[in-house]
């Protein structure tokens, strides 16, 4: 994934960049499967790798597919900022629990209750689904509002100038309904 990300940063052909973003997303989905998050993995594969790539290709078709080289001093400044921020973040991780530690704080609060009681309370074996649709149903409702707002925004931005080309957000909405 790091190799792909570096390639994305260095390439100037936007078409190749968009394709690499799809690959990056797919690698992320593979990583989620390894980390036991199967629901997240297939959402990422469908929405992240699929829809995003289509949206970006659509944008490239309407704009341009070559990028100009960034000025050198700006790249150096950006590198300095990025390395500094990264160092601070790595310093921050020193207090984090180790990978896979069952005693980590995140596993002590509501998660055991969800795992223990959701089977009897909701009646479906997939805990992720029961949390998404029931315990945290308002989150999912809010997510739907966000998608509606985004769709309305895209329509407001593009709708006046051009009739077609505004079917993009509805595609995302349909995908969301399936997920």
């Amino acid at each position: 994934m790091i190799v792909v990300a570096v390639a994305i940063a260095r390439l100037h052909n936007l078409f190749a960049v968009v394709m690499l973003t799809g690959i990056f997303s797919l690698l992320g989905a593979a990583a989620y499967v390894v980390l036991d998050a199967v629901d997240v993995a297939f959402t990422e594969a469908a929405v992240g790798a699929g829809i995003s790539t289509v949206l970006m290709l659509g944008t490239l078709a309407l704009t341009t597919s070559e990028e100009r080289t960034a000025p050198r001093d700006r790249v150096i400044l950006a590198l300095v900022v990025v390395v500094l921020t990264g160092a601070v973040l790595v310093y921050g991780t020193l207090d984090m629990p180790f990978y896979g530690d069952p005693m980590a704080a995140i596993h002590q609060h509501v998660a055991p209750r969800y795992l223990g009681a959701s089977g009897a309370e909701i009646g479906i074996p997939n805990v992720v689904t029961s949390i998404l649709a029931s315990y945290r149903g308002y989150d999912t409702l809010g997510e739907t509002f966000v998608i509606f707002t985004a769709a309305a925004g895209v329509l407001a931005i593009l709708g006046r100038a051009r009739g077609p080309g505004t079917s993009k957000p509805t595609k995302a909405e349909r995908e969301d309904a399936e997920v």
């Binding site: 998050a37 629901d39 959402t43 999912t140 997510e143 925004g153 969301d176 997920v179």
Partner: peptide
């Protein structure tokens, strides 16, 4: 399962912001 749920929501919201 809790981070999985949060990220499921975040992925979809991410696509919405990308589209916008």
């Amino acid at each position: 399962p809790l981070p999985h749920v949060l990220i499921l929501t975040a992925i979809v919201v991410g696509v919405a912001t990308t589209a916008l």
